[in-house]
Amino acid sequence: MLLLIKYTLLYGIVLMLVALGGMFSEHSGIINIALEGIMVIGGVAGVLALTMLPADAPAIVVVLVSILASAAAGMIYSLLLAFASINLKADQTIGGTALNLLATAIAVVLAKYFSESGSAKLNYSNKPFLFSIGGLELSVFVPLGLVLLIVSYVVLYKTRFGLRLRSCGEHPQAADSVGINVYRMRYAGVLLSGALGAVGGMAYIVPPVQTWNFEVGVAGAGFLALAVMIFGQWKPFHIFGAAMFFAVFKSLANIADSTFLASFGWSSNIYNMMPFIASMIILAFTSKNSMAPKAEGIPYDKGSR
């Protein structure tokens, strides 16, 4: 049971962070389908920072520097999406898909370049990231995620910036007419999603294992986060709930072979399938009253007012 809670928290926080990233981007009016790629880039940057830091550096420095490196890489990478979809008005879905394809290639090339063995596997120490409360071993990403969740809520609903950001996703023309710079707001939204997505990618890779093969990327977690975001109706706390719901199934898949669940004779494939099927069913029922930002996916053109 403790194992189930542990896996659920670890994985749920990942999904939540990435989904929050997607939420910021979509509230600004940009569909960010590149979350998967941003996670990969954030993961590879964070892990590389980890391996390069001296082994005797204090834990707090290691954690801070690598998380910041990861977030910075994610923001730089998300600039590519922002530039294509805001300035060049390219199709956001296609641009995002291209970035997903590119991210895995970049990560593998980087990992092979920096690893001693010449394979795409990087070894690192995840000790600084772990701590335990009463036998429950957690990573620093759990408290960090909860803090970011509250910050996200405050930023989105209680600040001037949040209101402006949301207005750009709902009705950019109206926002522009009252003097809000729509392009800048959309850049802000995409950059935030880059930072959160990248940290999420690192949270996915670092805590559970000490070596990661970047050929597998993040195995669809970014796409699942998109589903979490939709299921969470683009609202921070709903997203938290949705992420935990999805994470329970994923955790069941992880422990299916070793616990009482083995007696059902269901393989991990079936548990892996469940969150996807559940989200399809939920989507089917909630599609009629979707809370999606109205202007998402539509490039903003000043001339077309």
């Binding site: 294509a84 296609i94 641009g95 291209a98 394809l101 290639a105």
Partner: peptide, 9 residues
């Protein structure tokens, strides 16, 4: 990957 990104616009 780069070619596809360029194709997007």
């Amino acid at each position: 990957g780069i070619i596809i990104y360029l194709c997007a616009f």
